[in-house]
Design a protein around this nucleic acid. Structure first.
Ligand SMILES: [Mn+2]
Ligand SMILES: [Mn+2]
Ligand SMILES: [Zn+2]
Ligand SMILES: [Zn+2]
Lengths: 128, 128
DNA sequence: GTCGTAATTGAAACTAGTTTTCAACTACGT
DNA sequence: ACGTAGTTGAAAACTAGTTTCAATTACGAC
């Protein structure tokens, strides 16, 4: 555990929304000025393996990252402010029976991501 | 509708598994030898907008594409042979109530992708 | 504390993936 | 056939991500 890694981890933990590698680099430099971009890439890779970070997949490219707790969970992202939260408690298992019947595959894993409107955006833009 | 586009479309339709842009280029050149890589990118973009192609998201980067029918559907990929199929009939709607209660978000969309073992791989490797 | 070693770091060079530019070429309606 | 708007491909430009390597740092053994 080194200072550069702590800086990246902290920037990630503070973020309310998924960050690109560049953004993460910018923010983490606040903690550790001489932080190199390469280290951000390397740290993300380590954290991803540990399950402490998740890549957020979006239509188009998938270049942003959010903190995550280890183990199986899913993310939901606000379509207005981009705030992203995770939740767990499974879920898709309930559907696998039907899917196996429909496709003939045996389901061994899944990958779910949701879009919605976060609590605070629901309050502000009360319309709709 | 031009010859280059037909070539790309055909290569996509024939593929049993998601293809990278390079792979698609290779295969489509069989139909139209002077096909440029740029055209593959451009065609994919058009087809994606039309909902005729979907990007397959994987752990790590998300650089492969599979044919798809327009409208809401999901993909399941075989963890042994990479064969990818799509299915529809919804599904996740059943879970949104619980997710909204859990997260406080209002759910407006989702994005599900499954991993499993395809029928023919189930037959061959009967063990497990 | 000091030392030794293995792991980590950051700059620079490199590779891969994607987009832009632009002149030539098609598709297709008239 | 003709005209035009849309499409194409090569090359150049650009962006994202990886490798290389010498210097630095963490940390366990003394
Ligand atoms: Mn789940
Ligand atoms: Mn669905
Ligand atoms: Zn919001
Ligand atoms: Zn299979």
């Amino acid at each position: 555990m080194t200072a550069p890694r702590r800086a990246v981890l902290r920037a990630l933990a503070r973020a309310q929304r998924p960050l690109s590698v560049e953004e993460l680099h910018e923010r983490a430099k606040a903690q550790h000025a001489r932080l190199g971009l390469v280290t951000v890439y390397r740290t993300l890779q380590v954290l991803e393996e540990l399950g402490l970070v998740r890549r957020i997949h979006e239509q188009g490219a998938c270049r942003s990252f959010a903190a995550s707790s280890p183990g199986h969970s899913h993310a939901i992202t606000c379509e207005r402010c981009d705030k992203s939260s995770e939740f767990n408690g499974d879920d898709v298992c309930l559907l696998t029976g039907a899917i196996e019947r429909k496709t003939g595959y045996r389901v061994s894993g899944h990958w779910l991501q949701l879009v919605g409107v976060c609590p605070s955006c629901r309050k502000s833009g009360a319309e709709r």
